[in-house]
Design a protein around this nucleic acid. Sequence first.
DNA 1: AGCCTGACGCCGC
DNA 2: CGCGGCGCCAGGC
Length: 114
Amino acid sequence: MKIDRADFQQAVYDVVRSIPRGRATSYGAIAEAIGFPNHSRLVGKVMNGCSSTDEHIPAHRVVNSQGKLVGGGSFSTPDQMKQLLQSEGIEVSENRIRNWKNVFWNPMEELKML
DNA sequence: AGCCTGACGCCGC
DNA sequence: CGCGGCGCCAGGC
């Protein structure tokens, strides 16, 4: 099944905007939540363009499955992502979220019942 | 159409 | 625990 760019992008934004402050999720989790388990990379692609949109997307709350802050390159500075997370109370050490297990926010658990 | 790349993820070493 | 390989799919050349 082919994926509609706009639809996929919208779905991703919708999920990301639903991420509570002080929490974070992963690309794979988002992809799974919107029904495309194998499209984690596309989620990343979409997030790459998040800066190009007017929607205020908390892109900094999206990291990889290890809780690592990959993607800092799309921010003003690589540390921007880290700073934003820390300002929300998320502890980050060396480009990595501490307590990732606890900080992780599963979109499926929160959105599947909608 | 073929080839390379990428904000990923998992498994092996 | 870091590194590398492979799978994944869409997009740019």
